[in-house]
Design a binder for these strands. Sequence first.
DNA 1: GTGAAAGCGCTAACAA
DNA 2: TTGTTAGCGCTTTCAC
Lengths: 338, 338
Amino acid sequence: MATIKDIAAYCDVAVSTVSRVMNNHPDVSEDTRSKVLAAARKLHYVPNNSARDLAASQTDAVGLVVRGAENPFFTRIIRSIERSCADAGCTMVLHQIPVGADEIERAATLVQSKRLRGLILLGGRYDYTSEEVSSLRVPYVCCTYTNHFGDLSRESFSSVSINDKAEAYRATKYLIDHGHQRIAVLLDSIHDRSISERRYKGYCEALADANIALDEHLVFETGEFSMEAAYKRCSEYLSSKQDFTAIFAVADSMAIAAMKALSDAGLAVPHDCSIIAIDGIEMSLYTVPTLTTLVQPQSTLGEEAVRILRDVLSGATTSGHIRLETTLRAGGTVGHAH
Amino acid sequence: MATIKDIAAYCDVAVSTVSRVMNNHPDVSEDTRSKVLAAARKLHYVPNNSARDLAASQTDAVGLVVRGAENPFFTRIIRSIERSCADAGCTMVLHQIPVGADEIERAATLVQSKRLRGLILLGGRYDYTSEEVSSLRVPYVCCTYTNHFGDLSRESFSSVSINDKAEAYRATKYLIDHGHQRIAVLLDSIHDRSISERRYKGYCEALADANIALDEHLVFETGEFSMEAAYKRCSEYLSSKQDFTAIFAVADSMAIAAMKALSDAGLAVPHDCSIIAIDGIEMSLYTVPTLTTLVQPQSTLGEEAVRILRDVLSGATTSGHIRLETTLRAGGTVGHAH
DNA sequence: GTGAAAGCGCTAACAA
DNA sequence: TTGTTAGCGCTTTCAC
């Protein structure tokens, strides 16, 4: 395996010169530059990342910490982040952590051991405190969420997200506009200090604005973000009664599980029950009927996260916040109440 | 940032002693060991991977090259590989490549620049030649496939897979046993030198063994491995006629797309058409009716791939091949022909 | 514009 | 059982 030393010897120059050429430093004569480049190609030189990182005391790597990678909504985002990183020439280190783990703690360790330059967090909490994130010591971007319940200053972190409350409001309103009054909401927990809590807020406000009283019995908390839990929760409720005409699910995956529960209970969508969700995962195009949902710009979410992180790392900015919008895709799961 | 030097100074021992402790080397007295460990914790020591890799002149990283990461079947496998790597204390470098790209070429470059110790390949071709893989220069494991159409010797590579032909035979036979004679097959291409070609073979043999003539019109080639293509292909066919009573899809995702196409054409599953597939992705539990499929042990596939790679890297073996079996999950998509 | 040399933090002989 | 020391391959001052 050829090293810069080999090339230096081969070209009869100093290793520092080779290093300069490899890093596109300005002051190298055109002559030596091309000579070195030719030798590098000839000797099949490939830089050793470890050595480079050690000397520069930082890597070219950014970390992607994903909590709850089982969520199908993340697949496309992860793919787009990986692709954007590759295009930008930096290594992406994927680290998946269990739903119960503390992503900040894990991320901090990862940053140190892998000498990461920056982080992208997927599926994190909405309530970071400035104290806890101080352990990170590198720039980070919250992807698909922001610091709604925390105390971070806008300048101290970055985020790419949608307006959870507003979008949930929109979804609920869509059902109300279709004549629904008894609308159930399917979510993880109304006190999760995270996505469910925010979207629940939007649901509540939409009901309030339409003068519909909130009925706690129609708040289906699953306790975790899985299809299995969503299916179970719906089934339990349906086995006793069905006194709602529509469901707003905070995620496509949950909606799909709910549709299955409805079907198993002998109910037809949308005839007996309408359903709407937020996400727009690929699979939601293939449910029968097609799921009506607010589609998040998944690829863009990932691309923007990488873009912001790079801008911050290059010193162009100190932080960045982007709020994207969803697109309503009217499928066949919402009908008029009767 | 604390280094072993800091710890050495703090404990008044040599750096090599600290290094020994950190690497669990045997001959260190219990006294010094605990003293060093305590200091490490106290000073928040985290080893610097770059330095470690450089000194050891190899990294702790293995690469995972995924071709066609959009395939939902891969999600759980990727997750399990990542988890197994983390548990084993090695870094996993994920690299996704487009369906059209050459995974061996990409992998070879990745190995050199990142100094990878080994590779796991997901979604690769079945026809590697010994010449092309020689560029890899590190041990690799083919995950979910093997070298059926290539010329590799068993000792020169590793694999974790199912018996594609046999499982396809089993799926087709299951339909035949339910009285079906006009059975369509949904796949990428019968000449893809890969998964589709192997499974097609199993389909053909099952038909032959049952004395059912192969009807080329019932071979639905999509040309690519996507839900969209599968949906389109089925829809096209159905718009002209429906002269089959069952479909064998080579993948769950394709089957789900086919079910949508059937539904859109006004056909009921399984009444008008039965359907069976191979994979067992989570989503297939939530289709209506539940998809009947041969479930692959996805987590095990990933775990075994990592285990084999580690065995090879540690020198315990030179290669390993594991063939796993699927489990039939009878859902509601297969009925008796009438 | 180029070279010499001092590390980056760690591992692994080799001594003691 | 422990310490000393020489690198691993590269970047980066600082001279020239």
